[in-house]
C-alpha cells in the first residue's frame, strides 16, 4: 500500500520539474533504475519485508528523476540513477533475506514437530515392547502349565498302564512286558478263547487303545504231546485267535503280530501233566518306548 503513495510523489515532482524545464532528459542507467523499481514494486514482499530500504530506493529514484527533469549533467543523472539501482537491489536482497529467515523459523517448527513424532514413536515402541514381553510371559506361563498338565497326564497314563498290566500279571523282561495266557484260557486242543480268555483279551485291548504307541507280538506254544506239525499249527492258531479277538475289539491289525513256536521254548519239563499245562500257553509281548519287539533268541 505504501508504494502507492510513492508513485504520485515521483509523478508530482516530475511534473513540477517539467513545468520549468524544456525537454526531460533520460539515460540508459536511469531507464534501468526505473525498470528495476517497477520490478520491485511488482514483488509485494519487497515493500512488506523491507519497507525502510524500499523507501530509500524510492527516494533515490525520485532524486534521479528530478535531476533528469532539471536537465542536469548526464554524469550526475547517471550517478543518482546508479545509486537508485543499488538501493533497489538492496531492498530486494533484504526482502530475500527476510524470506530465508522465515524459512529458518519454519524449519525450526518442522524440527520440533518431527522431534515430537520421534518421542511419540519411541513411547509407542516401548509400549509395544512391554506388551510383547507381557504376552510372552503369559505364553510362557501357559506353556509351562500345559507341560505340567501333559506331564501329569503322562504320569496318570503310566500309572493306569502299570495298574492294568499288574492286573494282567505282566512280567518285565528284556524284550518288554510279557503277559502269559495260560492253557486254561483256551478250550482243550482248541484255538478258541474261553470266556476267561476273552476277558483277559478285553483288558489287553484296553491297554492297547490307551497306549496307541505300543505294538504287540503274540507268541503261541504247546507241550510235546502229539506231532510237532500239529503242535506248531495249534500254537499258530491260538496266537491268531488272540490276534483276532484284539482286532475285533478295535485294535488296529497292523499293531498286532503273531508267531507260532509249537513245542519249542518250554517253560517246564514235559514229564508231569502240571508241567505240560505250563508249556501250553500264549505269551504276549508289549513293545516299550516305541522300539520294535526283539526276536526271541
Amino acid at each position: 500500500m505504501k508504494k502507492l503513495t510513492f508513485i504520485p510523489a515521483v509523478f508530482a515532482v516530475s511534473l513540477f520539474m517539467a513545468a520549468c524545464s524544456s525537454t526531460p532528459t533520460t539515460t540508459s542507467m536511469l531507464d534501468r533504475a526505473r525498470g528495476d523499481y517497477m520490478a520491485a514494486q511488482n514483488n509485494p514482499s519487497v515493500a512488506a519485508s523491507a519497507p525502510l530500504e524500499f523507501k530509500a530506493a524510492s527516494d533515490a529514484l525520485n532524486r534521479a528523476n528530478d535531476a533528469a527533469a532539471k536537465n542536469d549533467s548526464l554524469e550526475h543523472i547517471d550517478q543518482l540513477a546508479y545509486i537508485a539501482t543499488q538501493k533497489i537491489a538492496t531492498a530486494q536482497q533484504v526482502a530475500h533475506q527476510k524470506a530465508e529467515e522465515a524459512r529458518i523459523a519454519d524449519a525450526g517448527r518442522q524440527r520440533d514437530e518431527v522431534r515430537l513424532q520421534q518421542r511419540t514413536q519411541e513411547a509407542d515402541q516401548a509400549k509395544a515392547a512391554a506388551d510383547q514381553a507381557r504376552m510372552q510371559a503369559v505364553q510362557a506361563q501357559n506353556s509351562a502349565a500345559n507341560a505340567q498338565a501333559a506331564t501329569a497326564d503322562a504320569q496318570a497314563r503310566a500309572a493306569a498302564l502299570a495298574a492294568e498290566l499288574a492286573d494282567l500279571q505282566a512280567k518285565q523282561t528284556e524284550r518288554g512286558m510279557v503277559i502269559t495266557l495260560s492253557d486254561v484260557l483256551f478250550n482243550t486242543d482248541r484255538a478258541e478263547l474261553s470266556a476267561d480268555g476273552m476277558s483277559t483279551a478285553r483288558k489287553l485291548a484296553d491297554v492297547l487303545t490307551q497306549n496307541p504307541e505300543r505294538t504287540v507280538l503274540i507268541e503261541g506254544f504247546t507241550d510235546s504231546t502229539g506231532s510237532a506239525a500239529h503242535n506248531l499249527e495249534l500254537s499258530q492258531r491260538r496266537a491268531e485267535s488272540v490276534r483276532a479277538a484284539l482286532v475285533g475289539m478295535g485294535v488296529d491289525a497292523s499293531r498286532v503280530a503273531t508267531k507260532g513256536y509249537g513245542e519249542a521254548y518250554p517253560v517246564a519239563a514235559n514229564d508231569t501233566s502240571g508241567d505240560r499245562q505250563l508249556n501250553r500257553r500264549v505269551e504276549i509281548v508289549l513293545s516299550q518306548n516305541g522300539n520294535p519287539i526283539a526276536a526271541r533268541r
Binding site: A60, K87, E100
Partner: peptide, 22 residues
C-alpha cells in the same frame, strides 16, 4: 550504495545457507 548492497547480499547468502542447513 555499493556497500549497502554488498552487506545485504552477504546477509542473504548467510541466511540462505543457514536455512538450507536447518
Amino acid at each position: 550504495a555499493d556497500a549497502q548492497l554488498a552487506q545485504s547480499k552477504a546477509n542473504t547468502a548467510k541466511a540462505t545457507s543457514a536455512a538450507n542447513e536447518v
